[in-house]
Amino acid sequence: MKKIIFITGASRGLGKIWAEAFLKRGDQVIATARNIESLEGLKAIYGENILPLQVDVNSRAASFAAIEQGAAQFGKIDVVINNAGYGHFGTIEELSEQEARDQIETNVFGLLWVTQAAVKLMRAQGHGHIVQISSALGQAVMPTLGIYNASKFAVEGLSETLAAEVASFGIKVTIVEPNGFTTEWGGVSASASEPIEAYSKLKEDFQAGLSPDSFGKPEATAAAMELLIDSENPPLRLFLGKVGFPWVKQVYADRLATWEEWADVATAAHGF
């Protein structure tokens, strides 16, 4: 069945790949970005089936207006994919105040504003599916990406809470957790802090631990996203790629072992 899909961050990378895949199969797409020039090609091919909107998700008013405009254009919105965001590279010590605030502003607050607008619309509709693009780094961390890790951990907590709050309205929530993919995420789409020499060895070791096999092919994610939004009972969480799940599984095994080791201390702290 044809769906009306609202997707943020659709000008490049995974967002654009997904928007094009949805259009190819006959869906209608509201595609938002800060700069929509890169969507002109899709507009030329798919015409009235795509509505490109220039939106800064950091603006709550603009996010609400975009959802309203998309619904007015197509009559409803079945799926909202919160994909807008970027990565910031830098150790915790290297972060400037503005860099930290900017990362949280876009990755957390930008997602929150679109989410609120989507819930308002979908609650009135009586149905909908909100897909929050998190990361495997919302479950386990890597050094030099601390503020990005923090933003995705926030997305996870916010979205799991949301799922419990809106289920009775017929709204479904899925948190998508991609591992690395060969997009521009770590290049022109990213930002970086002024380096401190003391962390040079850490960064070298981190880069040396990555291999080409660590990064998936972005085009391969489109089929998974189609299956997800077509599912009548979508999962709360979905990894994308072959790296994330085994890695996070080991991380959780280590966490459980530590909690078990300190369980007596934790229980005693209850007081009775």
Results as ranks from 00 to 15, higher is better:
44 A>M: 05
45 I>Y: 01
45 I>K: 14
46 Y>F: 15
46 Y>A: 11
46 Y>W: 06
48 E>A: 14
49 N>S: 12
50 I>R: 03
51 L>C: 07
51 L>V: 09
52 P>H: 06
53 L>T: 08
54 Q>D: 02
54 Q>V: 03
55 V>W: 02
57 V>K: 02
60 R>S: 13
60 R>A: 14
60 R>N: 12
62 A>L: 08
64 F>I: 11
65 A>F: 02
66 A>P: 04
66 A>H: 06
66 A>W: 03
67 I>K: 02
67 I>F: 02
67 I>G: 05
67 I>N: 05
68 E>P: 01
68 E>N: 12
70 G>R: 04
71 A>N: 07
75 G>P: 07
77 I>Y: 08
77 I>M: 07
77 I>H: 09
78 D>P: 09
78 D>W: 02
80 V>N: 10
81 I>C: 07
81 I>H: 04
82 N>Y: 06
84 A>Q: 10
87 G>Q: 11
87 G>N: 11
88 H>W: 05
88 H>V: 10
89 F>N: 10
92 I>G: 01
92 I>M: 10
92 I>Y: 05
92 I>P: 01
93 E>N: 04
93 E>T: 02
95 L>P: 08
95 L>T: 06
97 E>D: 14
97 E>K: 08
97 E>R: 07
98 Q>I: 07
98 Q>F: 01
99 E>T: 08
101 R>E: 15
101 R>Q: 15
102 D>E: 15
102 D>W: 02
103 Q>D: 14
103 Q>T: 15
105 E>G: 03
107 N>V: 08
108 V>E: 03
109 F>W: 14
110 G>E: 07
112 L>Y: 11
113 W>K: 05
113 W>S: 09
113 W>Q: 09
115 T>P: 08
116 Q>I: 12
117 A>W: 06
118 A>V: 11
120 K>V: 12
121 L>A: 12
124 A>L: 11
124 A>C: 05
125 Q>T: 14
126 G>E: 08
127 H>N: 13
127 H>M: 05
128 G>W: 06
129 H>P: 12
130 I>W: 00
130 I>R: 00
131 V>R: 03
132 Q>G: 06
133 I>V: 15
133 I>A: 04
133 I>P: 02
135 S>F: 04
136 A>V: 14
136 A>G: 13
138 G>M: 04
140 A>P: 03
140 A>E: 10
140 A>S: 13
143 P>E: 09
143 P>F: 04
144 T>F: 12
144 T>V: 11
146 G>R: 05
148 Y>Q: 09
149 N>D: 15
149 N>H: 11
152 K>Y: 09
152 K>N: 11
153 F>V: 05
153 F>I: 04
153 F>H: 15
154 A>S: 14
155 V>S: 01
155 V>E: 00
156 E>V: 10
157 G>V: 03
157 G>T: 03
158 L>P: 03
158 L>V: 13
160 E>A: 00
160 E>Q: 00
162 L>I: 05
163 A>I: 00
163 A>D: 00
163 A>M: 00
164 A>F: 00
164 A>Y: 00
